[in-house]
Design a protein around this nucleic acid. Sequence first.
DNA 1: TTGATTGCAAATGCTTTGCAGCCGC
DNA 2: GCGGCTGCAAAGCATTTGCAATCAA
Lengths: 146, 146
Amino acid sequence: MDTVADAALEQLLRTRGHRVTRPRRAVWEVLRTARGHLTVEQVALAADALGHDVDLASIYRSLDLLEELGLARSSRLGDSDASRWELAHPDEHFHLVCTSCGEVDHHVGSLVAQVRDHLDAGHGFDVDSVELTVTGRCTRCRDADA
Amino acid sequence: MDTVADAALEQLLRTRGHRVTRPRRAVWEVLRTARGHLTVEQVALAADALGHDVDLASIYRSLDLLEELGLARSSRLGDSDASRWELAHPDEHFHLVCTSCGEVDHHVGSLVAQVRDHLDAGHGFDVDSVELTVTGRCTRCRDADA
DNA sequence: TTGATTGCAAATGCTTTGCAGCCGC
DNA sequence: GCGGCTGCAAAGCATTTGCAATCAA
């Protein structure tokens, strides 16, 4: 329960002309607490566990809003067809998706920045975001096999 | 109509114990003819235009099979929720998705290979595939604005 | 002939939407 | 009190699946 971050959320919402509501607080709290990549359903369960009973539709709407505000980020990882959500990290990173256990890790590196620079430099493409996803087997699963 | 490629498909199918059927030929022909990133529905329309009336379910099944054989590749590009399919290119490349016109370009470069090497080298992650997607505005759309 | 494969239609699962009532401001 | 938001239920869409008929081998 980070009251500072909560205050920041509230202020940002108001500044942009949105209201501070229970579902929005709840989703924000979940995203901050349970870090990692959550499906919408997992967000709902987590919110429930925190004592907030929020409708799925409202969670979708809140997540979209947080994304619009630049606070959250969605991606389609692995082979699942459900979107996964995480906090919008300021640092560039990419995703490592394990095909065995489904685990998703962050990997911070300069590679994403390199791509950005490369394109900015001479290719005339106005880069908005770079999504780098690597699938394969994580160390743990590989060891488990051997 | 590349008869050589057709023959290759037929042989590969038989080698793997699959049958050579009308839907599979049709989907393969579409993927080879209309290059680019096609949704399943676009594949269906293209097949229709080529004189093959194939059911959507069969197209899904054929595409899955072609992917399993390493001949096709699917990806979730842009914000759309429909998968897009393309031929499995032997060369490493990444995707440039324009948020204005929706155009998807290939961009060949060594960056994808770099990621692979980087991870193979010291991070213990057994890389299977690397998916690098860049969203932003293409040259044409940017010029149109100015 | 024989069983893999197709076409059709129904089902599934994620996500969106319409709308009446509620609540932040 | 006003108007944005929520909750609920129904609708939308991409994709999958069950099954009888079909067709490649």
